[in-house]
Simulated scan of single mutants.
Amino acid sequence: MRFEIRCKLEKKVISTDYRRKILSFFKGSLEEYNIDIKKAIYDDPERRNFTFSVYLPVEKIEKDRVYLKNNYIKIFLSVENMMEALHFLNALIGSKGKKISMDENSFVVVRIHKRLEKEVIRDEAVFRTLSPIVIREVREGKNSWYHDFDEKGLKILKKNTLYNLKDKFSKSLLEEFEIVPIKTKRTVVSFYSSKFPVTLGNFYMKGDKKILNYLYKSGFGSRSSAGFGMLEIIE
Rank of each mutant, 00 (worst) to 15 (best):
Y72Q: 03
H147Y: 11
K185M: 07
F52W: 03
Y55P: 00
L86W: 07
Y204E: 06
I37W: 05
L23T: 14
R6D: 00
L231M: 06
E117H: 04
L86P: 02
S53K: 02
E4D: 01
S172N: 13
V110D: 02
I37Y: 03
K38F: 10
P197W: 08
I22K: 03
E62F: 13
E117Q: 15
V66N: 00
R128S: 06
L174K: 09
L212N: 08
R115H: 01
H147M: 10
Y163R: 15
T187Y: 04
T161W: 07
S131F: 09
L154H: 05
Y163L: 12
V198W: 02
E137M: 10
T187K: 15
L157S: 02
L68C: 11
S53L: 11
K155Y: 05
Y216K: 13
T161Q: 10
E80S: 14
K118D: 11
L130V: 07
S172P: 02
Y72M: 13
V138A: 05
R139S: 02
H87R: 02
I37R: 13
E104W: 02
R6K: 14
T129S: 01
K118N: 03
L30F: 09
S78I: 14
E31M: 13
R136T: 05
R186F: 05
E62T: 05
S224Y: 08
L56M: 00
D64P: 02
R19Q: 13
K166W: 10
S24M: 05
N34K: 12
G219Q: 06
L200W: 03
I73S: 02
K168I: 14
I41Q: 10
I41G: 07
E10D: 13
Y18W: 08
N34H: 09
I35C: 00
I233Y: 03
I22L: 06
E137G: 05
S95P: 09
F149A: 06
K11Q: 07
K114Y: 07
V180K: 15
F52C: 08
S29Y: 08
F52K: 04
M230N: 06
Y72C: 01
K155D: 14
Y163A: 13
T129I: 05
T51K: 01
I211G: 12
Y55R: 03
I233W: 01
E104P: 01
L92G: 07
G94L: 03
